[in-house]
Design a protein around this nucleic acid. Structure first.
Length: 865
RNA sequence: GGGCGAUUAGCUCAGCUGGUUAGAGCGCUGCCUUCACACGGCAGAGGUCGGCGGUUCGAGUCCGCCAUCGCCCACCA
């Protein structure tokens, strides 16, 4: 807090914000300011599970917003003396990258093609001629495709790092990872193999939600409902006696997949029919009529057709009523080309009318057929209803039966569900109400976590299957590699005890063709970042981590899946705290998104307003609260940054160059001590706010104090600080100003890292970001029990004097003849302690006081012409 | 259908465990070219704190109901 005599002051004549980002980023990098001290004890470490941003696009203001929140917390903890472990990851694994590479290079992955070692990255589509752009996409092998993915993400990651550095994230850039890099693949495969060994991971042949465009299974967490137009078709199912039962369906094309009709057990209309049978129209397949409580008497005609599978309710009925599987939709979303065996021979021709058609085409055709046969009653009745989509998909999901990998997540195991719910309660959420989203999600799970995907760019499922004498895979006993072989790719690597020539041969083996879902890897970011099983020393010092910062919409995916993996592998939470950021909204309160075409590029904002100013806007958004994108707040942030520069220049420049250096022991004036007493209260408040992860409040309180400090305290002490006739008073003023400046800069440092570092460098050694967080006790010692009321009353009286001058349209330098303050004894006593400062600052000739009903009168001196 | 959050000046938001005339910034109006700051300073106008009840000596602050907005979840016949 003291000024070392050896440090010369270097206060610039005309300080500026321009260029601070590049200057300080380079020095922080050169000096290793944010390097993690890997020798620190666990209790001293603060480790952060940074969200790895998806690299398949560009960063937007929402990223700037939430990453700034985390950075303020990292900087606060660092100043509190913690060794902050703050790595950066890149999420380059998975479908988004595949899509970006497909579009960027105009290529398609064809896993049946052999690897071409001579293949070179094609000219990006955007740089091609019009004629070239019309060429069809080139088909390339899986390995060539994966290489293109790696190359493009590497470029993107450089651009991301540049933005983060410009924004001033105090990340340790020597510790980065990518979710597709070798280390991440090892962690993902190792964790999977351990899940498998413990029976937590398993395969099952079961109905899955299937995206027909991506040709891949989709997990519950990746679903979203979209309102879609549809129509109820009223269709008769004939009973043996010839009378028809009418159902209403939106999916008439699934009639060939019908396995039963279902009604509510209490529904008197249908009770007599239970356990009788009906025949499907057109196809004449006999199906039973069954009771089930899930059937809603209010919906449609109150009796439903169960198909395998039209929707997830069908899956429940199918499972609980033990119905046969009669799937007709293929993985391409078209009706199977072969006539299914359960269709009677005399209906085969009817089925062939539909074979090979998409669901939509088949629906149109079957409606014609039903109309012709008279089974369709009346016109289809249009409705709008929610339909499940893959969140990244364009067409409704279908349900097909296939073999997939799952990890138990409590969706089918109440005991595990309860333990995971307890983990959610164990975690400290900021803000606290976010735990509700976790409880909602875990409580509502209806199946295990489907982790396999039929895609290319991802971590392969690390198993092979033996082929029997007929060349069919033996799924029950997967062949697994030893952990020291990881990572492996079963499509090129060979299981122990086999040789490459046996691949695909009867008695040989075959690799599992699937990759794991992105979340199956990113659910392990704590283990990846802390180098689980790879660097036991680092792991012991950093895991479980202290903080998971993230946005609220991925609580159900990223946060939950990370808790699942850590619970299963380590039997504990992966982190102690979760801080949840809100979204950046348009001024019209909609979530900002690229598709709406309203995204401003972050770099342009940083350059226009300065990084500190943009950070100020971001840090003003309270934890968990959606915040409007507001350039006005950035202007205010810029003004604040400028004020910090100028007020600091004044504070450090008071007095002539020959004036003796000041020392905190010089602080004797009551007003100076009162100011420091108020500052101590601010430090307490800001510290308490940061301890509860409320960075926004810490900023707001500091900012309020700082403006009052500039407007009132600086003005009140300015004359005394320059007063050569009062060396003790001047020294007190200057010493107190310096203490206050040092304190305020450190309180601002987490928010405005560039301008505070710049000012700090004018007269202090080392980085402000490694300086200790201010302590209220030291300030109280310097304040020596001073009453903060002194500063309050002095500011109020000065304010009244200013008001009188403004009202008279006079300059603030105008002379005042007389001021009379009537107030309580207590407040007058406080004023008396600073009366000379008030008189000098207000240019008041005579200041009189009297006890009584509070009032202040100001008499200006006559204006000189 | 269930849940969470929000609703305070024209705009963006504070107001922490209930306590004197409800705050800030932007915008608006006026003034001041003050020796840190014109990327400035000082001041002013502007609000029945979404509505209705309730608890309390006292409610923007606690409770209930309602309304509007946003989000999350839900089995979509």
């Amino acid at each position: 807090m003291t000024t070392p005599d050896s440090t010369p002051r270097r206060v610039p004549e005309k300080p500026a914000l321009e260029g601070l980002e590049a200057l300080w980023d380079a020095r922080w990098e050169a000096q290793g300011t944010y390097r993690f001290d890997a020798t620190a004890e666990r209790a001293q470490v603060y480790s952060i599970d940074t969200p790895p941003p998806t690299v398949s696009g560009s960063l937007h203001v929402g990223h700037v917003f939430s990453y700034t929140h985390t950075d303020t917390i990292a900087r606060y903890r660092r100043m509190r003396g913690r060794a902050v472990f703050y790595p950066m990851g890149w999420d380059d694994n998975g479908l988004p990258t595949e899509r970006r590479v497909q579009n960027f290079y105009g290529v398609r992955c064809d896993p049946s093609l052999p690897y071409d070692p001579a293949f070179e990255a094609p000219t990006p589509v955007a740089e091609r001629t019009k004629a070239e752009q019309k060429q069809p996409a080139a088909h390339i092998s899986r390995r060539n495709f994966v290489e293109l993915c790696h190359g493009l993400t590497a470029q993107d990651e450089l651009a991301f790092e540049e933005l983060w550095r410009h924004l001033g994230l105090s990340v340790d850039w020597s510790r980065t990872y990518a979710t597709i890099d070798e280390r991440s693949q090892r962690v993902a495969q190792r964790a999977f193999l351990r899940n498998l060994a413990r029976g937590e991971a398993y395969q099952a042949e079961a109905p899955v939600l299937w995206d027909i465009d991506f040709r891949s299974a989709v997990a519950q967490a990746e679903l979203e409902d979209r309102e879609q137009p549809g129509a109820y078709h009223r269709i008769g199912f004939p009973r043996p006696d010839g009378e028809a039962i009418f159902i209403e369906t939106t999916r008439p094309e699934l009639i060939p997949a019908c396995v039963a009709l279902v009604a509510h057990p209490d529904d008197e209309r249908y009770q007599p029919l239970f356990d009788t049978s009906v025949r499907t129209p057109l196809f004449g397949v006999e199906v039973p009529v069954l009771p089930h409580p899930l059937a809603d008497p209010e919906k449609g005609s109150g009796i439903a057709m169960i198909c395998t599978f039209g929707d997830v309710t069908d899956v429940i009925w199918w499972r609980e009523l033990d119905l046969p599987t009669r799937g007709v939709l293929g993985i391409d979303g078209r009706l199977l080309r072969e006539v299914p065996e359960w269709i009677p021979a005399d209906a085969a021709a009817t089925y062939e009318e539909l074979a090979g058609k998409t669901a939509k085409q088949a629906q149109a055709r079957i409606v014609e057929l039903l109309t012709a046969s008279g089974d369709l009653v009346g016109e289809p009745r249009p409705i709008t209803h929610p339909v499940k989509f893959y969140e990244k998909g364009d067409r409704p999901l279908e349900i097909v039966t296939s073999r997939q990998w799952y990890i138990g997540n409590g969706g089918r195991d109440d005991a595990l569900r309860d333990r995971l719910l307890a983990r959610g309660d164990e975690l400290a959420w900021h803000p606290g109400h976010m735990v509700v989203r976790y409880r909602n999600w875990v409580g509502g799970l209806n199946g295990d976590w489907l982790i396999s995907r039929q895609r290319f760019f991802g971590v392969p499922v690390p198993v092979w299957f033996r082929l029997d004498a007929d060349g069919l895979p033996v799924y029950d006993e997967p062949l697994v590699p030893s952990e020291d072989r990881l990572p492996i790719d079963p499509s090129t690597d060979v299981p122990d005890g086999f040789d490459a020539a046996q691949r695909g041969e009867p008695g040989g083996f075959v690799g599992d063709p699937d990759i794991m879902d992105t979340w199956a890897t990113s659910s392990l970011t704590p283990q990846i970042a802390t180098q689980w099983e790879e660097d036991p020393d680092l792991f012991a010092r950093t895991f479980p981590m202290d903080l998971r910062p993230q946005a609220h919409e991925i609580i159900r995916t990223w946060l939950f899946s990370t808790v699942v993996r850590s619970h299963l592998e380590h039997g504990q939470l992966p982190w102690a705290n979760a801080s949840i950021s809100g979204w950046v909204l348009d001024p019209d309160r909609k979530k900002m998104s690229k598709s709406k075409g309203n995204v401003v590029t972050p770099m342009a904002l940083l350059e226009q307003y300065g990084s500190d100013a943009v950070r100020y806007w971001a840090a003003s958004g309270r934890p968990g609260t959606d915040t409007a994108f507001d350039e006005g707040q950035m202007k205010i942030g810029r003004r604040l940054s400028m004020k910090v520069l100028n007020a600091s220049r004044f504070t450090l420049g008071v007095g002539d160059d020959d004036a003796p250096p000041v020392d905190p022991s010089d602080i004797v004036a009551p007003l100076d001590r009162a100011m420091l007493a108020g500052l101590a209260e601010l430090v307490d408040e800001a510290t308490a706010a940061f301890e509860r992860y409320d960075y926004a409040r810490a900023l707001e309180r500091t900012e309020t104090f700082f403006w009052a400090f500039c407007d009132d305290h600086l003005e009140l002490v300015k004359p005394r600080a320059y007063d050569t006739a009062d060396p003790a008073g001047a020294a007190s003023a200057r010493a107190a100003l310096e203490v206050a400046l040092s304190t305020l800069l450190r309180l601002f440092a987490p928010f405005l890292p560039f301008v505070t570092e710049e000012v700090w460098s004018w007269w202090q050694e080392g980085s402000i970001h490694l300086a200790p967080w201010p302590g209220a006790d030291e300030l109280r010692a310097l304040a020596a029990d001073a009453d903060p009321l002194v500063a309050v009353v002095a500011s109020e009286v000065l304010g009244e004097i200013r008001k009188a001058k403004t009202a008279a349209k006079r300059s603030l330098r105008a002379e005042v003849e007389r001021v009379e303050v009537v107030d309580t004894e207590v407040r007058l006593a406080a004023l008396a302690a600073a009366v000379d400062d008030v008189r000098l600052s207000g240019k008041v000739a005579e200041l009189a006081t009297a006890a009584g009903e509070p009032a202040i009168s100001v008499t200006l001196a006559p204006a000189e012409d």
